[in-house]
Design a protein around this nucleic acid. Sequence first.
DNA 1: TAAAAATACTCCATAGGTATTTTAT
DNA 2: ATAAAATACCTATGGAGTATTTTTA
Lengths: 161, 161
Amino acid sequence: MKTATLRRFQLVADGVTVTEVSEIEAISQPAVSRAMRRLELEVGTPLLRREGRVLPLMHAGSAFKAHVDAVLHHLDDGIAAVQQILDPEQSTVTISFQPSFGTWLVPDLVSSFHAEHPQIRLDLRTKSDETMPEVGPRSDVDVELATCDHVKAPNILSGGS
Amino acid sequence: MKTATLRRFQLVADGVTVTEVSEIEAISQPAVSRAMRRLELEVGTPLLRREGRVLPLMHAGSAFKAHVDAVLHHLDDGIAAVQQILDPEQSTVTISFQPSFGTWLVPDLVSSFHAEHPQIRLDLRTKSDETMPEVGPRSDVDVELATCDHVKAPNILSGGS
DNA sequence: TAAAAATACTCCATAGGTATTTTAT
DNA sequence: ATAAAATACCTATGGAGTATTTTTA
């Protein structure tokens, strides 16, 4: 089981389409589709309902999803902690966005930003997976993509992460 | 990054030798050795000190280890949750043991048990990684390998997990 | 019918095994 | 001298890409 597969599952489970995930992760659409199949094989049961274009979670899927959120948060925190030790200057930017934004905004945003600043880690978290009750000091969000009437002030300038 | 690699790192970081890990996981010794190298490559820095037979953690290693413990706990809990939904009869047995036990007892124990009961998931946790402050209802330990003067009563018979 | 997901096929990269060498106790 | 870790070499399985087909909104 690869952590990249869990990342893709997380996005798909949040309502992002397989095609959009493929754009975000800069891989082909079939790769994402097969990754979901593989994950279901490894877990031992179907997780997603194949009912057309959107892949809603099945019972087992939503149960698994909550844990996957926690897994990836801890993993990102772990990597960020190591980065911090290696080079205190190099920070990880955590971006929180609503699944609806992921649809059209995030893919371009990520790829263009990563093209210009390849050394900055981008830590994507969909708004819906706020399942983590503050796991550690490094689990704060730096940038949040929201609609205009509830914008939060980003703490990226104060060296938030 | 594969979760199996994180599992091996967890054991090595707990003081289990590479050779012993290879026996526990039923793979070759070089496979474990290279898995550690790969992990260090992916994380971006050395994690273990190569000073002979034992591989003590470096600074970045111990920082990473704490998060890896959390990652694997959540992953195991997620898989166990799915198993529970699939088949409430099939339980996952969580075994906690001290690193010193892992050295000689666990490899045989695991392989022989799994040979007889392949459908039962064995969830190995070294005693030292008690870094998890009770993450969920399923994070309890069923069997604990300890020395005689501080044995705990196993709750496996009451359907603990 | 248009957009997305799934399949077929091929290819390459990564992980694993066996054999061997190095290293530390 | 012995036991463990690392390296070399080869093999194989798994993951990814392109092209295509199926499906549904």
